[in-house]
Each structure stands twice: as C-alpha cells, then as structure tokens.
Amino acid sequence: CHSECLGNCSQPDDPTKCVACRNFYLDGRCVETCPPPYYHFQDWRCVNFSFCQDLHHKCKNSRRQGCHQYVIHNNKCIPECPSGYTMNSSNLLCTPCLGPCPKVCHLLEGEKTIDSVTSAQELRGCTVINGSLIINIRGGNNLAAELEANLGLIEEISGYLKIRRSYALVSLSFFRKLRLIRGETLEIGNYSFYALDNQNLRQLWDWSKHNLTITQGKLFFHYNPKLCLSEIHKMEEVSGTKGRQERNDIALKTNGDQASCENELLKFSYIRTSFDKILLRWEPYWPPDFRDLLGFMLFYKEAPYQNVTEFDGQDACGSNSWTVVDIDPPLRSNDPKSQNHPGWLMRGLKPWTQYAIFVKTLVTFSDERRTYGAKSDIIYVQTDATNPSVPLDPISVSNSSSQIILKWKPPSDPNGNITHYLVFWERQAEDSELFELDYCLKGLKLPSRTWSPPFESEDSQKHNQSEYEDSAGECCSCPKTDSQILKELEESSFRKTFEDYLHNVVFVPRKT
C-alpha cells in the first residue's frame, strides 16, 4: 500500500485506493498535508475557505447554543480562536489581540433580562453583547459592586439597553466600559436606550469621564423622579442622539420631579488639616426662599486615587461607600458681607490618608415646582503625618564578641513616609551569675543571650482551647457569634421535631 494509506488498500502504491488515510483526505486521495488554498479540518480532512465560511455563517444565523462559528488559524479551520487571539470578521482569520481579548457573548432569543446578581454573573467577562440587555433589578445585597464585577467589562451592545423598574439602582456607572450601543435591534418605538419607572436612579454616568455613542435609535425617559433633566440632556449631547427624540420621548413632568437638581456650584473657602482632623468651610448658599434650606450634607471617604465619582458603590438597598454628615444651616444675616460661612470639623480620621470630599445642599421643593440647590466639586484632601507606631517583631542576635545583629519589621501604621529608623542602645553591667558559677561542674549549661522565638506554653494553649472559665478566673470563653447562636437554635429545633416524629412513629394507638 501507499505510504499515506492506513489499515489496508485495494490497489498497491495508489493513494486513492486506501481504506483510511494516515494524515489527511483531499478529493478522494490521501495526502501528507493540505496544500494551499485548503485548510486542515478536524485533523483528517482538507477543506477550502468557502466550506469553513459556510459553517461560520450557519452557526451565526441559527443562534443555536453550542454550535461553533468556525475560524481560520495556522492553516486550520477550527471552532474558535485560541487564547490571546480574536477573529477578523472580513476573512475569519485569528489575529493577536492588542491588550485583553474581546469576548463576544451571543444571547438566546436576542435579549437577556438581568433581574438578579445570579443572572448578571452569566455575563461575567463579556466585552461584546450580541443582542439586547434588559435591566430589571428590584433589590439585593452589595448590588453596585456585584454588577460592576460582572457587567463592568461590557464595551458594546449590538441591540438596545433597557432599564425598567430597577428600584435598587442609583447610577449606571457599573457599566464602566460601555462605549457603544449599535441599535441594530430596537425596542418598540425605535428606541435604543429605554429608561422607565426607576424610582431611585439619580445618575446615568459621570459624563466628564465617560463617552457613549448610540449609532441608531432614540432615547426614552419616563417616570424617573430623581433623575434630573440636565442629566438626560447631557446624554443626548454626548451620545449623538440630540435631535432624534420626539416631543413625548422625554417626559418633562415625570423626570426629576422629586430630585434636588443642583444648578449652582458650592466653593470651599477654608481648608485646614491635622493628622486626624480636617476643618472645612464653604461659601454660604440661600435659595430664593431661605426657609427652603434644610441644611447641608457632607460626604467623605478614603480615596487612594483621584478618580472618585459621587455615586460609586451606591445602591438604593443601603450600600453606600460614603460617610454622610448632616449639618444645620448657619444663622442668616441681613448683611451679605457678614454672612457666616458654614463648615464642619471632621474628626477621627487616619493620618497621612487622602480623602475625597464634597458637600451639597438639602432643600425642600418650592411652590413653583422649581428645584434649587448647590453642590461642590469633589475635592481631595490629605491629612498630615504623625509619629508612626512601633516597629514590629524586633530580633537581636550576637554573632561574635563585638557585634549584635538587630532586625525588625516595619510598623503596622507608618502614618507617613518613613525615611529612617533611630536605634538606641545602652551598655549593661555583666551578670554576677557568670562569676559565681563553678565551671568545672559536669552538665553545666552556660547562660545564653542568643534570641529564641517566643512560644506559647501548654497552660496558655489549654486556656485558649477551654470553653469555660478556669477556677483562677484568668480566662473566659469568647462570646458566641450570631451565626453560632442561630445554628444552635436550628439544631435544637431539629432535635425537638425529630423526637416528636419518633414518638408518633414508635407509639401507635392500640386498636379498641
């Protein structure tokens, strides 16, 4: 048989008469490798580009789960590009990614509803959504962080984005990388972005840091009482949809009607710091009717980097990364020049730590249904340095008659930039024990000054392991946590139920 035959053949030295091919099969003959313009397919066939392209389009058009959109890589027609490569849609070739590779997620039936953290986790790592997304989240724990972890990498949506009755959302900033909504599939009414009845939605994105392009379709905003109209108009300008909307697409009466839409800028007039305090004062603000001013709200939190936005980490279910302080308005003076500047002394802060701070007014709604208010920009203030805590785990070892090696770990709280350490030492008198000992005694162990690591005695271990207080009263049991108490109650309830079950099964009433 021919060298490319495997198993047997019907005619000697003829690659077209093989029972099976050793390498690849091409047009009725066995070959060692697939010549151009053919590609290896499933490690035994040679196919042309049209064959591989037909497989790709067949799966793409069917949208069946589990099928493969075949691509070409290293002269092979394979189910998908290997790690580190992405497909070129024009020629199906796998090309190296520039940075992290995109991950295209194809949605069944063309859309997916995100109504819980669990459903959001199914899209973790996706960068391109081939379909439409509907966000409908009523509640949950730590929602802002969970949504950002699972949806934060999405850069492109081919269909539309719909935010509907998501009472738990305060902001859409968890879509931190969303840059493009194509609108290839539109919501009824030709809408590519749809926001309806979101009672706590206050911000779409921080438009000073976020760009969003909507290729096709219109915007729809109705019944978002805490979303200011200025935020919607800003989205029109940034996304390129200005002029597409009709009169009733953006409701003037049901958007922002319960919001404090600040239209003035508060400026800080005085800032002073110490290692654990920050004193702030800002310019006074009074609405047209000074009785509408209820006070100020001061927001602050630790910020290692200057990239904080107002609604980071917030949701309507209680999660809030900001510390909020309510401040009463100052006494009002008739003389504008003698107006008191409101302020606040922030206490209990960490030394040498940068804080993000902003302040906003708290006002009631005027009778004319106009909203007044003022808010400052987010500023960054760093507390002063102070003395560091003591170095940890000092170790001293003498390696000769004239040297001592000293080692330690950095302090747990540096409280500033540590530039150097101060080492103090003092000579001590020799131990009298060394002169009084009889060095001729056998088995004498000389006193040693070398360091030995501390260890816990058996008594201390027994005390720590004991669940009861000892007789001397030195140790006591740790208080039980809520989960331990709940577990004990469940076990007790189970024992009672099981005992009742045994009584009912074992003891049967005697027939009379």
Rank of each mutant, 00 (worst) to 15 (best):
D315P: 08
N224H: 14
G131R: 01
G313P: 05
G110F: 11
D292T: 08
Q121R: 03
L151N: 01
R332M: 07
T215H: 09
Y223T: 06
L294A: 06
E146R: 15
N130A: 04
L331H: 11
P336S: 11
L392Y: 07
T371E: 02
D335R: 13
I135C: 15
E310Y: 14
R247D: 07
A316G: 04
Y270R: 15
A303E: 02
T323V: 15
R369T: 11
P288F: 11
W282Y: 02
R347H: 15
N340D: 13
L107N: 12
C261S: 02
V390H: 00
D292V: 02
L298E: 00
R165I: 10
P336H: 08
V381M: 10
S208I: 10
R179L: 09
L219M: 10
G318S: 13
Q245T: 13
G131T: 02
S119N: 09
S333K: 11
D292L: 06
I214D: 01
I134E: 03
W207D: 11
F296V: 13
N320H: 10
N334T: 11
E148V: 14
F299L: 07
I271K: 14
K242C: 09
L201V: 09
I250D: 12
V170A: 07
E231D: 15
D289V: 01
L123E: 01
E246V: 09
I232A: 11
Q203R: 13
E156Y: 04
N399P: 10
E237Q: 13
F268Q: 01
F365Q: 14
F268P: 06
Y355R: 00
I378V: 15
A144V: 13
T371M: 13
K360M: 10
I357H: 01
F299E: 14
D326R: 01
S119K: 11
Y191A: 12
T371C: 02
S269L: 14
P394M: 04
L362Q: 01
P351N: 04
K177T: 07
E155F: 13
T353H: 15
H233S: 07
S398P: 05
P288H: 09
E155N: 12
M235S: 05
K242T: 07
E156W: 15
C228P: 02
T386Q: 08
G313I: 08
Q258W: 11
I378C: 03
L293M: 05
K218S: 15
P225R: 03
F220V: 13
A120M: 12
R202I: 00
T386L: 04
E246D: 09
N150P: 15
I327H: 14
L265E: 12
G189Y: 15
L172I: 15
V104E: 06
R179Q: 14
E368V: 15
S398Y: 04
Y194S: 10
T241K: 13
P336Q: 11
N198E: 00
G343K: 14
P410H: 13
S166Q: 06
L180M: 12
G373M: 05
R369H: 06
T118K: 09
V170L: 08
T309V: 11
L172G: 03
I114S: 00
G125Q: 13
E122K: 04
I135S: 01
A149I: 05
N136F: 08
E187D: 14
G240E: 05
P410R: 11
G152V: 03
Q245I: 10
V324S: 02
D197N: 07
N198C: 06
H341I: 12
N263A: 04
K209Q: 12
P410V: 15
Q354W: 11
P351T: 10
F275R: 05
K162G: 12
W344T: 14
D115F: 05
N307S: 14
Y380R: 09
L108W: 08
K267H: 05
P388H: 00
N387R: 08
Q382W: 05
F175N: 01
N130C: 08
L169W: 02
M346Y: 03
R138N: 07
V170M: 09
V117T: 04
L266M: 06
L229P: 04
L212M: 03
I114T: 01
Q382P: 13
L349P: 01
W205I: 11
I357C: 03
L201K: 00
D249E: 13
E231G: 14
I157R: 00
I357N: 00
D249A: 07
F174H: 07
L293G: 06
N399H: 12
S173E: 08
L362S: 02
W352K: 04
N198D: 02
C317I: 02
P287Q: 03
L406T: 02
L392R: 11
L392N: 05
K234I: 07
Y355E: 00
Y355T: 00
L345T: 10
L161Y: 02
K253D: 03
R124Y: 02
S402H: 11
E231Y: 06
D335N: 12
I378L: 13
V170S: 04
R332K: 10
E111A: 15
L133V: 11
F365A: 09
E302Y: 10
Y355L: 03
T383W: 00
T113N: 08
W322V: 05
K350I: 07
Q403T: 04
K209S: 12
Q199H: 11
T371W: 07
D257M: 05
Y300F: 10
Q354C: 15
K253F: 13
L331Y: 05
I395Q: 03
L147K: 00
L362V: 02
K162Y: 15
R281M: 07
H222K: 11
E246G: 14
C126H: 01
N150T: 08
G295K: 07
K350L: 10
